[in-house]
Every structure is written in C-alpha cells, then in structure tokens.
Design a protein around this nucleic acid. Structure first.
Lengths: 230, 230
DNA sequence: GGGCTGTGTTCGGATTCGGTAAGAAGACCC
DNA sequence: GGGTCTTCTTACCGAATCCGAACACAGCCC
C-alpha cells in the first residue's frame, strides 16, 4: 500500500474508492511525495499514528470510521498533522472546516488532482511557516475575518455571511491590495472545476458589500477584478 | 489536419464530429494556438505521444479508444500534459473529473467555444505553476508599477490608470529600454484577437503620459514604436 | 523653406463593464 | 409538503472606457 519515494515526506491517503486512491497516489508521487493508502477508517487512524505522515488526505465518507472522526481523534491526542478532506458535496463544507474539526483545507468532488496537489503544497507551506500554528484573524480597516471560526465583524459587530460569501471575503483579505480576476476568484473560492459564470462573482461581491455596509473593504478594479483595500 | 500557427503552442483536439472539431479549431487558432485534430481514439493517443502538445482536448465518446482511456494511458506513461474533456451529459461529470481520471477540467456539450478557450488558458496557467505568488513592483525613474495591486505611483503620488493604460505601461516597463512596435503592443496588451487600429496605441500612450505628467517614462522612437526609459 | 511622413491631441459616438434587482432551482429543516 | 435559505442566472441601466477619425504639429529629406 505504500509507494516510497519520500523526498518531500510521506502523505497518508485514506480513501475507499480504489480508482480515486490510485489517482491521488499517482499525482502525489509524481510530485515527489511518498504515499501510503488505507481503505478504511480504523486502519487509517492506526496508520496515521504509526507512520507520522507530513499530511493526511481523508475522505469524509469512509467505512469503519469517518474521516472527520479520524481527524478529531488525532487532534485530541495532540497530533496537529495537516489534514485535507475530500468532500462529496459543498454542503458538508460548513461543518467540516474549522467548526467541528481542525481541518486545514478541503477539496470538493469532483476535483482536479492538480488542485489537490496544489492545496497540499499550500498547506505544508503554511504549516512550515509562522510558528503560531493557529490561523490568525485578519484585520483590514474596520473589518476582521477569523478563518478559524469562520466569523466576520465590521466595527466590532458580528456579520452573518454565508459559506460562499465568507470564502470570497477571506480570500480577498488574505492578500490585501492584491487584485484578483474573476477567474482567479472562481478557481480559489468555487473550485477549479466550477462552472459558474463570472457574473456570479459580482453578485456575491455585492452581497458581501451589502452585509458589511459602510465598512466595506472590497474595491472594484474595472476591467480586471476585485481587491480588498490595503 | 494541423493548422500551424503556434505562437502559444500546439493543442491536440480529438473529436470525431467534424462540425465540432472545426469549430474548436477555429476558435483555438483565432486565439493564437496551433491546432492538430484527430478523429479517433488510437490516432489521438499516437498524436499526443508524437506531437507533445501543450494541452489536449478530448471527447469522451470516441471511436477506437475513449478519451478517458487516452488520458489514463498518458498518465501511466508519465505524460502530464493538461487534459480537458468534452462530455455530453452532466451525469458523466462526477465520474470524469478527478474521480477516475487525471483530468484537469471538463466542458459539457453543448458548450460555448469561448468557454473552452477560457478554460484552456486557465489550465495552462495553472500547469505553468503558481504565477510567482508575489510579483515585485517595478521602479523606473520616478515611476513605480506594482503588477499585483495594479497600482502606479509617480514621485510617490498614486496615479489612477484605467485597465488598458495600466497594462500598456506595465508591459513597457517590464523591459526597460526595449522598443516595442505598435503591433507588438497591440498583441501583448490588447490580445491576439485584437482588431484595433495601431493609432489606438498612440492615443493610449498620450493618455498615460498625461496622467504621469512630468514623471513620464515613455519615449517615442520615431518610425518604430515606444519604449520605457532605461 | 517646402513637401512629406509620422506623431500628438482632442472629442463624440459606440461599446463594454459593473451594480442591482428579481426570479428559478435546489437543498435543508421542520 | 411547505417554508426558508443559499446559490446561480438573467435582464436592465447608468457610467466608465475605448476607439477611430480628424486635425495640428514636429521631424526629416531635398
């Protein structure tokens, strides 16, 4: 089950669908990772403890033990290995990220394997970065975004955003001043294989602006895209 | 079968329906891609190996060898050329992307050729790796250009440029001293399919100069084109 | 200086772009 | 099954922007 080639470390993949597991293994090993695959939840948890991988890719729906459960048990035991979830539907995302679990990222099916690799690299970069470990809230002008709690405040007042709206705002504020094209935002927030029209971005931006009111932080760059004020 | 014009590289299209193939060829070549078309699966696979295209557009349902199969064989052979699938029905999508295959994106029929081109560009951009993440601001004389923020300052004072004006200035300043002809600038800033007259460049140069004022950086090379001061 | 070519500048119509509202589709909860 | 919430699409409108023509001007050659 293990493809050893760990120039970049060993990644644990827990996925019961063989075709998906093979694909993920293919792409990860191509990228220089060692890969170890388990097919059910309990074996996955055991492998995580035994092998000490640099990161875990967990399907949510697993026989034996759900991916979420694996993550939670790891965290309880003080294991903060980066975890990326594979989720079947967007709906699961809210529960998944940050709320119940210490997940670091997630990828929704159908996903491009390239995307998974890209996110894995990003997660590892992040984990290696600031020693703080915990994601810091981002403050910009009168707006604060807390990626951990997925909460937003404007002038200290909590603002209720939907999942998509939050991801959009958080992504813009992750790099203040940086201008993102609509395509970039679609890729980052909606996912690589998203097939929404680019005007969809506009509508969601408008929604976020309305909810933030006068504290709004999103600036339009005509002919290009959007950016968070810096 | 091959339309050679590959300023942007060669794209392999495998599609048995001639009308669709022609349409795709038309749009891709208009966008500056070279296009090679094959009509059945085995020939497609052979062409992919022989021609080493920058990307493949594969119909799923193909005589001889399914598009999915072509993709899988390429991957197995260590060929990671980006692949976009053409799928007839939405239902196939779940199975298609990432699940069974190493596809990078997909387009469902009936599709807009524009969308296909847009997705192809996105995929190539992605495959080229992260765009450097943080682009460094360019300083030349009294003018600073920050590609990330799409902001310009002259003597430290922010200057408001429109999208086209910014792209023009940024392109000139990306290679200080290099003289660009009007045609080159049209191609680079306006795009390959630009049908604007070359005098349009003059007008925009004038506009940029006016906004930069005394700090202006653009020099005219009579009979040739424009350059940023070096 | 006189022509000639190439460039600067101005300006209005045409086009494109983004904000907004309204509604359809789907998921979820009760 | 009805109601609610979220997401995505579409249509419309005002405004920013672009384009190209027209004209004025500057440099080059004789």
């Amino acid at each position: 089950m293990t493809a050893e080639n760990p120039q970049r470390g060993l990644v644990l993949v827990v996925e019961d669908e063989p075709s998906i597991a093979d694909l993920v293994r293919l792409y990860l090993s191509r990228d220089g990772f060692g890969v170890h695959v388990e097919r059910d939840g309990s074996a996955g948890l055991a492998a995580a403890r035994r092998l000490r991988p640099v990161a875990c890719v967990l399907d949510i729906a697993l026989p034996g033990l759900a991916g979420t459960e694996i993550c939670r048990r790891l965290r309880e035991a003080g294991d903060w290995t980066p975890v990326i979830f594979l989720t079947a539907r967007d709906d699961e995302v809210d529960r998944v990220v940050g709320l119940e679990l210490g997940a670091d990222d997630y990828v929704t099916k159908p996903f491009s394997p390239r995307e998974l690799v890209a996110r894995l690299r990003a997660v590892l970069r992040r984990a290696a970065g600031p020693p703080g470990g915990v994601a810091q809230p981002v403050v910009l002008g009168r707006v604060t975004v807390d990626p951990d709690r997925r909460s937003v405040t404007a002038d200290g007042v909590p603002v209720q955003l939907t999942s998509t709206e939050f991801d959009l705002l958080a992504h813009l504020m992750s790099r203040p001043g940086r201008v993102f094209s609509r395509e970039e935002l679609l890729a980052a927030v909606w996912g690589y294989a998203a097939h929404a029209g680019t005007r969809t971005v506009d509508v969601h931006v408008a929604q976020v602006r309305a909810k933030l009111g006068a504290a709004s932080v999103i600036r339009t760059h005509r002919g290009v895209g959007y950016a968070a004020d810096g």
